[in-house]
Design a protein around this nucleic acid. Sequence first.
DNA 1: ATTAGGG
DNA 2: CCCTAAT
Length: 645
Amino acid sequence: MGTVVDIQVDGEKESEESDFGKAGVEFSMRTAVDGEKGTEESDFRKIVASDPVVYQLVRVEGDGRLVPATDDEVMEVEHLLEEDKSGLASDGDKKHFDGRVSNEGLPSKKSDFEGLSQSENTEVDSQELNARLEYIEVMLPKVKQEERLRMSPESANHSTKCMDVNHQTFDGRDETQACKDKLQPENTSMETAPSSMALNDRQGVQLESAETCSGPTNQAVTSSSTVSGTCTSSMPDFSILKGDICLDNLSIRELQEAFRATFGRQTSVKDKLWLKRRITMGLTNSCDVPTSNFVMKDNKIVLKEVKEEPSKLQKSKTEESTLPTDQVTDPTNSNFQDLPTSPTNQTEDQQVASKRLRKPLSEYDEKNENLQMEQFAAKRVRKPTRRYIEELSEFETRECSARLLSSVKNSGHDQSSPKSRIRPVRDIGSRGPSFSTRQDSLGGFGIQVPYVSRVRRGRPRKNFVTLMNFVDEGEKRDAETIYGDDEHDLGLEEFDASGDNTDGNANTEPASKCGVRRKHHRAWTLGEVLKLVEGVARYGAGRWSEIRRLAFASYSYRTSVDLKDKWRNLLRASLAQDPTDEGVGPLATLAKNSRKHASVPIPTPILSRVRELAEMNSQTCTELGPSKITGHGGRNVQEKGSGFL
DNA sequence: ATTAGGG
DNA sequence: CCCTAAT
């Protein structure tokens, strides 16, 4: 007996909507749950199923970006789903979520959502459920109104209908279908297209995953195919044809482009068929269509959609039944046949990761995707290890640096807001059913890493280190942070001037080779140094934690100790350099600086500033001769002054 | 938990 | 960077 859970959570409709203006896109997550496991469970599910919640997963921000209602909110949903199966309920996430939200500036809705999720998480108390239902009932009208107000007539229509349906039905499945049936034809507006598509897609995939995960569920499969079938049939043929044509007509190059857009990586494959299939699959499985070319902005999305949506449909129509097998067996593994040891591939992976981390929209998709992927042969989602993220951030850093090179002087206080600081550290262990698949995914990597969350923050005892290194640290940290510090996705680290530092920080990973030597060594970028200096200037040397908190909000690595150490080094360097500086002149100094190893030649002015600050510091505390300061600093003062005063 | 200092 | 002692 399978039950289809139709969870549509809807937080924030009423109050904040106007603030974020734009439009809310509705997504529904449909999960087919297999009831075979246990009667209790299925009962639980039933209740859940009978209690559709509407939740807005994605919202459009002012700048047009699509933003998941919150990373963690999505996670919430994910959790809900997971919990559906595992019955686990963790509280920790909520806290994180909470913090995040307030930090993000999405105030009030939080409570709404929290209310929902709370009840969702707590045991299945029929009372609570009822309460929730009521709540929803209350909400719906408002929501509807909102919808109508800001959406075009058609879309308003649509959403209304959809909601009504969801609201009314306790089965959800048929109704939803019906809803879709109605929707499709009148799908004239652009806005409806994506959402409805998302619906379909999600359903399909979800079902698939469910199938894979808990064994074939006839019901589920049936419903899925029914759904897609209905959609397809009710959908004007032209679109499908169009889709076909679209992909067909594309040149190999274009296909490759599409591929790149879909997967964020280049491909050299020239097999049209393969490419088509791949793209289609990529889109279907992941909706992860974020990348460069296809703009996901309001209207633009359609552009892409027009082109790719049909393919999806087509896919779901044709490939759906065979898909699971297909995917596993598909030679597409070439996607990951790359070994982590290869620099090229690493870069690629990084790019991919970067994109995902950055792409607000994809984030939403990603979450679901991860969910799904984790369930059936995760072929490409392997969560970025912390290592990855670190490297990635460096990578991006370097990227940015190109454009912000000149900020040495005007090192303004573009401190990134500490927004993202509070990112939760997801405990993977609690991620209920994440079993064997993990190994599959890693299998592609050549190294089999048991994906048992080995969460330990403290470093391994020395003896251990060797061992750990041998295994490759990746996993060690993997467990601990994962998404913990992906500040990038918020586009925080804008300020990072550098570009001069050692090359190869990003992909330097001696670990792969000999594996014994290094601990993670992360070269300080110029930007970081600047930040540090500035931080010291602002908060004073010694208040490392402060500095770390405020000035280094975006750099999750770099502990206060690191800062301190770095400062010490800087100081030393500056002192060592200074005398020369005085006697010889900038040019010589410069040469001196750069002549060293290519490693991070800290620009003289910075060193000067460092020294300055140091002296300032000691001056304030002790009583050193001010004359000395002025004497040395005089020349540099301007730098400093213009820099951060 | 944070800071200072030695390694 | 790591580690430890001291606060």
